[in-house]
Design a protein around this nucleic acid. Structure first.
Lengths: 226, 226
DNA sequence: CAAGTATTCAACCGTATACTTGAACAATCA
DNA sequence: TGATTGTTCAAGTATACGGTTGAATACTTG
């Protein structure tokens, strides 16, 4: 005994909820965050999100059912990517809303970052100024593929895993600012911890390449590594 | 055997997912949509969303747990409102993403609107021009409280339920453009159906007051009804 | 103070969802 | 062709969620 009006509304909001459902699981949000950085294979996503491959595949299909991501077969791998830049902006809006309204986000972040020695984040424009003046070494600690796909101009690429062995590549006595994928990526944290232990003056930059680009600043592709 | 990094990430994305979970149920989205219009009591929300009061209360508490809405006791009633304008913008972003990427939204809307006689929606700025030229009568068919809280300048207030009895208030022979709460509110559809049956030249405007204001256009409060 | 009203709480049921495991299905490479 | 690798499918389980119903809690009003 439902009116056509009611049926219409129910149908419409049910459609809207498809997007909502897609972003209602923590792991799917993590996958979306990774995909905001760039296209990835299922395997890569599984590893970076600490999920089983099968589970990752399932989550990706939920995201695909909501049309938030697209899949394309590339040789032996299936590459997933955001269906649209709008999706990334939507994810950022959700993240921003959570940061602004949920005190718990701040608490969790604070507990983690403070636990590892006052790593106050360097503001992006502050860093920019210092980079331009040549005052600091900017260090990109992400995997080299990601560096190649786009990095902050002038940044040096040393994956966090290789950092210990490649410390000599860093100009001694110069302040280092490390960045990775974004505010909740922990590779830069690890890097800074190591660098400080080794006697470097090191800071972490919150912004990743995506945030950097979102501010309208220049991003370099490929090479240019001294 | 999970690393602190992993625990941190899990904790962070779990927080983000609180917002996602809040918008993963169709009925909660409908409640959010209503609250974007303005504050409402539990009872009013229950009626307008065709939910039981108890169920509405539960959904509202989920929204409140995600800090998307606030509640305030006002006399005998509890009034719920959006916690922040940012929440409304977020809802609009979600809606826009669904409209843009889910073909089904368009299908559902088309099926409903076409079923009731080609009610092509009038574009907001087109209407604006015609209103300013005095070519059309703008009709606000929402409940009078909502009209009082904010309406399109020059609009006449006749709730859809009273329209049949108050047809004589409308200038005869003049085109009527009806609006209500937004693109998926059906009161204006009902009104246009009735008006056409009675021989009026009538159209529906998709935009509600919130969309109108979002475009930066003027909104009137209180009175001014002839 | 008692009666009435608005809202929330608590218990319950059916369904949906996240994750695991093991097998099936491509596409590549030897 | 057969072996290997990457991805998806299918079945099973524990948990979470939406919705219902009926009682409990707060507040106003007579």
């Amino acid at each position: 005994m439902t009116s056509p009006h009611r049926r219409f509304k129910d149908a419409i909001y049910e459609q809207f909820a498809r997007v909502g459902k897609a972003v209602s699981a923590p792991k799917r949000l993590e996958l979306l965050d990774l995909l905001c950085q760039g296209p990835r294979t299922v395997e890569a996503l599984a590893e970076q999100s600490a999920l089983s491959v099968a589970n990752t595949s399932q989550h990706l299909q939920v995201l695909r059912a909501a049309r938030l991501v697209d899949a394309e077969k590339r040789g032996l791998y299936v590459e997933y990517r955001l269906a649209d830049d709008e999706v990334c902006r939507f994810f950022f809006a959700l993240r921003g809303l959570a940061e602004a309204r949920l005190a718990e986000v701040d608490q969790v972040a604070r507990a983690y970052f403070e636990g590892r020695g006052a790593m106050e984040a360097v503001e992006g424009d502050e860093l920019m100024r210092r980079v331009k003046r040549g005052e600091v070494t900017v260090l990109d600690v992400r995997p080299p593929e990601e560096y190649r796909a786009g990095h902050i101009p002038g940044a040096l690429s040393i994956p966090v895993g290789e950092l210990k062995a490649r410390l000599k590549e860093l100009p001694k006595g110069r302040e280092v600012v490390a960045y990775c994928r974004g505010p909740y990526c922990v590779m830069a944290v690890e890097a800074v911890e190591l660098l400080r232990k080794k006697g470097f003056k090191a800071h972490r930059m919150e912004q990743g390449v995506v945030d950097w680009r979102a501010r309208g600043w220049r991003v370099d592709r490929e090479g240019a590594q001294p």
